[in-house]
Design a protein around this nucleic acid. Structure first.
Length: 873
RNA sequence: GCCGGGAUGGCGGAAUCGGUAGACGCAGCGGAUUCAAAAUCCGCCGCCGCAAGGUGUGUGGGUUCGAGUCCCACUCCCGGCACCA
C-alpha cells in the first residue's frame, strides 16, 4: 500500500480488475431481483461535458448501491448518434457526419471508461448503425400498415435563400441563422405518428407512476391537455360567403356563447384565402402572417394583429351576423383553425376587441360581485365562472347548467355538440435532413405510397455525401432515391426525408436488453429487464422525450413486442450544471466571454467577492452571474482536465456532494479541492489503520457482547447514527447528505479515543468498514483499494450493504430544549425513560425557565418527546 | 404569453411528520508546525451588540404554544413550449 493517495494508480488498478473479472456484465437471472438502471444516452458531440458526468455519476451511484443490496444490476450505455450537429460539423469542417460521429463515440467512450462507471459495454448501441435503425424502419412499416402512421401537411420554417427547412433554434428573430433571410411558414407533406390515439391512456396511466416526480406528471398532464368542451358550428352567411357551409370552432366556455361578437380564422384558412381574392390589403396581411417562425413561444408573445374579411357567419342560437376576422394568433394546425371570440370574458379576445373597436358583450356576472360591467382595464375576475346575464332564456344559469342547456340546444339544431379535445397533437416525424434514419417509403406514380418490404430493409443511409447546408442532401442523390416500386416494379422514387431523432430515443432502452439480436427488434430478454427500474436524465426532457417513449412502448406492446406499458418505473430528473461567467465588453458592445479558469478573483476580509481580473493581463473583467455551462458563455469546465488532475473519484465525489441530484449544481474549483482533501484523509486513515490499528485487534472480537467505555460507546453510536441517516438518504436519492454522513463518520473515527487499544481497534474496524461501503457507490476506486489493503475482503463488490445496529444506537440520556413562549432559552438533560410529568417538572425547575418566566405561572406546557419543552406563560 | 420549478450565512447546501435554523463542506480569520512556503493539525466564524440580549430562511400578510416547512398575495431567477438534444 502506498503512503500517499495516488488516484491515477488506484483507479487504473481498480478498472483493470473490473475489466479482468467482467464485473459489470449483466446476465438474466430469475433468482435475484433485477435492477435495470438507465441513464439518458448522450449525443456524441465530441467530448463529455459536465452534465454528462453528473448524469452518469448519479446512475452509477444507484447501480453500485443496488448491487451491494443484492440486486442483479444492468447498467447499459449507448449513443443517440443521429442529429443536426453532425451536419453542422460537416459544413464547418468538411468531415462526413458518419466519420465525425464515430470518432466522437470512440473518444467519449474512453472518457466514460476513465470515470469508472459500472457499465455493461456488451450491450452498447449506436442509433446511426443499420443494425439499430433497421428495426426502427421495420416498426415504421408495421405502424403504417396499422394506420398509426399517416401523411398530412405540416407547417415548417422555410429559409427561402438556403432553400431549406430550419429547426426552431435555427430561427433567430425571424431570420435564418446562416442566411439571415426572413423565414416563412411553408406547408409540406409529412408523416405523423398518431400519438393522440393513446392520449387518454397516456394521461390516465400517469396516476400509476408513483416513482415519477409530481412536477413531471403534472407537466405531461397539462401537455396532453384533455378538456371537455363544445364544438360550435357557425353557418356561413350566403350573401357574403357565397356558398353554404359551417365554420367549426371548439370552446371550453360554451356558457359564454351569447357573448361571442366575432370569429377569427387563421391566415391559412380557406375563408381567409377566399376573402383575399380581390382584396389586396387582406392578401398583403395574409402574406405578412406567413413571415416568421412556427415556434409557439414566438406566436404567443408577438403582437396580436388582425383584419376583417368582410365575410360573415351566423350565430347558431341568436341568428345574428358575426364578422369573420383573420388573426395572426389563430393557428391552422390546431383544432379547426378558427376560434369564436368572447371579448368580455377572455383576456386575449378583450385585448384584440379593444384594439380594433369590436363589440364587447358581458354575459357572465362573477359570483364574487367583482364587477358590474366589463370595462377596461382587464381584470382576471372577468374570466371567472358565474351566473349568466344578457343571455335570454339562459339567464341565471351557472357554468355546468349553462353548458348543458346551450349544447343541448345546439345539438337539437344540428349545429354543435359536446366534445373532448386534447392539446396534444400528432407527432410529425419527417425531417428534410440527411443525418437521420431514412423513412422506409417508396412513392410510385401508379401505386401511391408503398412501404419498403421487410426483405429490402434496412434502407441504408449512404455515408459518402456532400453537405452544403442548402436543400436536402438525399434529394440530390439519384443513386439513393431512384428505385423500383415494390408493388408494380416500375421506376419509383424513394422517400428522401429522414426521421426525427426522438424516434431513435423512444425505444433504445428496450433494445439494450437484446442489443445483439440480428433477427428481431427485441426478444424475450426484454421482458426480463424492462421496464427500467430507474431512469436518470435532465429535467429538460420532462415532456417530449418521456412522452414519446411512453407512447412508443405502448405502440410496441400493441404489436406484441413487449408486455409492458410504462418504460420507466422510477424517474430522477437531474438539475443543470452551472458556473460563474466573466466577460469584457468589446468595441461594438459585443461581449467577449472569458473562461473562469483564466480569471483570478479578489475577496474582502469576509470572503466576499469584490473584483475579478484576467490572469493573463491583470486587468478587470465583468462578473456576469452564474449560467448553465455552455460553449457560448465560455464557462464550461472540461471533465477531462478535472480527471487528469484529481482523478475520477474526486470528480464524482464533488459532483455528488455539491448539490442534491435534482437541483442545479454550481461549479466550484475550491469545492473540488475539498473533495480531493477528504479522499486524502480517507486514504491516510486507511494507511494508519493498516499500520497501527489492525495489529491491536483482539483475536476474538468482543464488539456488541460487553460494555464499551463511555467515550467509545459514544463514537460507535455516532457512527451508527450517521449510517442510519445515510441509508435513509440513499432511499430518498439525496446523495449529497450521504457524503456528509461519510465525512462525519471519518471525523468521529479520527477523534475517537485510542484507549483501550483493543476496544478502539474494534470500533475503528467496524466504522471504517462502514465508511468504505458507504462511499463505494460514489468513489468506487479508492473504496476498492482500501477494502483490499485493509483486509476487509478480496473485492468490495462482493460485500453486503451495512445496516445500523439497534444496540449501538441506544441512548441513556437525552437533551431536550427548553422554550419559554416559543423562544429557545436553555436545555435540560433527562433519562431516556423519563415520563411526560417528570420532563415537565425538570423543565419548569430549570434555571433558564425560572429566569424567563419571571415568576409567572405557566398557562400551558407543550412536551415534544425527544425534542423540546415549550412553556407558555 | 402558457405550463412546471426554485429562492436559507461571503458561497454550495442541511434541517425525516409544524418542534434546537445554518449539519457537512468551501471561502475567510487566528494559532501550531516549518529556515520559509506548500501540505497538515487545532480554534473561531449568520447579522447587530462589550455584554445581557435582540434579530434572521426572497417580499407583504395570515394560521399556530411554536412556521424555512401550512394558507393567501406578490417579486425575481431557471426549465419546457412540439424541427437543439
Amino acid at each position: 500500500m502506498q503512503d500517499k493517495y495516488q488516484p491515477a494508480a488506484v483507479e487504473t488498478a481498480a478498472q483493470q480488475h473490473w475489466d479482468d473479472t467482467q464485473a459489470f456484465r449483466a446476465v438474466e437471472d430469475t433468482k435475484r431481483p433485477k435492477y435495470y438502471c438507465l441513464s439518458m444516452f448522450p449525443y456524441p458531440s465530441g467530448k463529455l461535458h459536465m452534465g454528462h458526468v453528473r448524469n452518469y455519476t448519479i446512475g452509477d451511484v444507484l447501480s453500485r448501491y443496488h448491487r451491494l443490496r443484492g440486486y442483479n444490476v444492468m447498467q447499459p450505455m449507448g449513443w443517440d448518434a443521429f442529429g443536426m450537429p453532425a451536419e453542422n460539423a460537416a459544413i464547418q469542417n468538411n468531415v462526413p457526419p458518419a466519420q465525425w460521429t464515430y470518432a466522437n463515440i470512440d473518444y467519449m467512450k474512453g472518457q466514460l471508461k476513465r470515470l469508472g462507471f459500472a457499465i455493461d459495454w456488451s450491450r452498447e448501441v449506436a442509433t446511426c448503425t443499420p443494425e439499430y435503425y433497421r428495426w426502427e424502419q421495420w416498426l415504421f412499416t408495421r405502424l403504417y400498415a396499422k394506420g398509426l402512421i399517416y401523411k398530412k401537411l405540416g407547417t415548417v420554417n422555410w429559409d427561402p435563400v438556403d432553400e431549406t427547412v430550419l429547426a426552431n433554434e435555427q430561427v433567430i428573430d425571424g431570420r435564418g441563422w446562416r442566411s439571415g433571410a426572413l423565414v416563412e411558414k411553408r406547408e409540406i407533406p409529412m408523416y405523423y405518428m398518431k400519438i393522440t390515439a393513446y392520449a387518454d391512456e397516456l394521461l390516465e396511466a400517469l396516476d400509476g407512476l408513483p416513482g415519477w416526480p409530481e412536477q413531471v406528471k403534472l407537466m405531461q398532464k397539462n401537455w396532453i391537455g384533455r378538456s371537455q368542451g363544445v364544438e360550435v358550428h357557425f353557418p356561413y352567411d350566403l350573401s357574403t360567403v357565397g356558398k353554404s357551409g359551417v365554420l367549426k370552432v371548439f370552446t371550453t366556455r360554451a356558457d359564454t356563447l351569447l357573448g361571442a361578437t366575432y370569429v377569427a380564422v387563421a391566415a391559412e384558412h380557406p375563408l381567409a384565402a377566399q376573402a383575399a381574392a380581390g382584396h389586396p390589403e387582406l392578401a398583403a396581411f395574409i402574406e405578412e402572417c406567413r413571415h416568421g417562425g412556427v415556434a409557439e413561444a414566438d406566436l404567443a408573445t408577438m403582437e396580436k394583429k388582425g383584419m376583417p374579411t368582410g365575410l360573415r357567419v351566423v350565430h347558431p342560437l341568436t341568428g345574428e351576423y358575426l364578422q369573420v376576422w383573420v388573426a395572426n394568433y389563430v393557428l391552422m394546425g390546431y383544432g379547426e383553425g378558427a376560434v369564436m371570440a368572447v371579448p368580455a370574458h377572455d383576456e386575449r379576445d378583450f385585448a384584440f376587441a379593444t384594439k380594433y373597436s369590436l363589440p364587447i358583450k358581458m354575459v357572465v356576472r362573477s359570483t364574487h360581485d367583482a364587477y358590474e360591467t366589463v370595462v377596461a382595464p382587464w381584470i382576471d375576475a372577468y374570466a371567472e365562472h358565474g351566473k349568466l346575464v344578457n343571455s335570454g332564456k339562459y339567464d341565471g344559469l351557472r357554468f355546468d347548467a349553462a353548458v348543458d342547456a346551450i349544447s343541448a340546444d345546439l345539438a337539437a339544431k344540428g349545429l354543435g355538440a359536446k366534445r373532448t379535445q386534447y392539446r396534444l397533437r400528432d407527432w410529425g416525424i419527417s425531417r428534410q435532413r440527411y443525418w437521420g434514419c431514412p423513412i422506409p417509403m417508396i412513392h410510385c406514380a401508379d401505386c401511391g405510397d408503398v412501404p419498403v418490404p421487410d426483405a429490402q430493409l434496412p434502407v441504408v443511409l449512404p455515408e459518402n455525401v456532400e453537405i452544403t447546408g442548402r436543400g436536402s442532401p438525399l434529394a440530390k442523390m439519384p443513386e439513393f432515391y431512384e428505385c423500383a416500386c415494390p408493388q408494380c416494379g416500375k421506376p419509383a422514387r424513394r422517400e428522401t426525408d429522414t426521421m426525427d431523432t426522438f424516434v431513435e430515443s423512444s425505444w433504445y432502452f428496450l433494445r439494450y436488453a437484446c442489443a445483439d439480436n440480428a433477427t428481431a427488434m427485441v426478444d424475450e430478454r426484454v421482458n426480463y429487464w424492462a421496464p427500467a427500474d430507474q431512469y436518470v436524465g435532465g429535467i429538460e426532457h420532462a415532456i417530449l422525450h418521456l412522452l414519446y417513449s411512453r407512447f412508443f412502448t405502448r405502440a410496441m406492446r400493441d404489436e406484441g413486442l413487449v408486455n409492458i406499458s410504462e418504460p420507466f418505473t422510477n424517474l430522477l430528473t437531474q438539475g443543470m450544471v452551472v458556473a460563474e461567467t466573466y466577460y469584457r465588453e468589446q468595441a461594438g458592445g459585443k461581449k467577449q466571454w472569458i473562461n473562469p479558469a483564466d480569471v483570478q478573483v479578489e475577496r474582502d476580509d469576509k470572503g466576499r467577492i469584490t473584483a475579478a481580473r484576467l490572469a493573463a493581463d491583470g486587468q478587470p473583467v465583468v462578473i456576469g452571474g452564474t449560467e448553465k455551462m455552455s460553449k457560448s458563455k465560455n464557462n464550461g469546465v472540461d471533465p477531462q482536465a478535472l480527471v487528469d488532475q484529481y482523478g475520477a473519484d474526486t470528480a464524482r465525489l464533488f459532483i455528488i456532494f455539491a448539490a442534491p441530484p435534482d437541483q442545479q449544481l454550481e461549479w466550484s474549483d475550491s469545492g473540488v479541492e475539498g473533495a480531493s482533501r477528504f479522499l486524502r484523509r480517507v486514504w491516510n486513515y486507511g494507511h494508519a489503520f493498516v499500520q497501527e490499528v489492525r495489529p491491536a485487534l483482539p483475536a476474538a472480537r468482543k464488539l456488541g457482547t460487553g460494555e464499551l467505555p463511555g467515550a467509545l460507546a459514544d463514537v460507535r453510536r455516532e457512527i451508527h447514527t450517521h449510517l442510519k441517516q445515510a441509508n435513509h438518504d440513499f432511499g430518498k436519492h439525496q446523495f449529497n447528505t450521504v457524503v456528509s454522513a461519510a465525512m462525519k463518520i471519518l471525523n468521529a473515527l479520527e477523534k475517537a479515543p485510542r484507549e483501550p487499544a483493543g476496544a478502539h481497534a474494534e470500533i475503528a474496524e467496524e466504522g471504517f468498514g462502514i465508511l468504505l461501503r458507504l462511499l463505494s457507490p460514489i468513489t468506487p476506486h479508492i473504496s476498492h483499494a482500501l477494502w483490499q489493503d485493509c483486509g476487509f475482503g478480496a473485492d468490495i463488490l462482493a460485500a453486503s450493504w451495512p445496516e445500523p445496529q439497534a444496540a449501538a444506537l441506544k441512548q441513556d440520556e437525552l437533551e431536550l430544549m427548553v422554550q419559554v413562549n416559543g423562544k429557545l432559552r436553555g436545555s435540560i438533560k433527562v433519562p431516556a425513560s423519563a415520563g411526560k410529568s417528570d420532563i415537565e417538572a425538570a423543565a419548569l425547575a430549570s434555571e433558564a425557565a425560572q429566569r424567563f418566566m419571571e415568576g409567572q405561572a405557566p398557562k400551558k406546557v407543550v412536551v415534544v418527546p425527544g425534542r423540546l419543552v415549550n412553556i407558555v406563560v
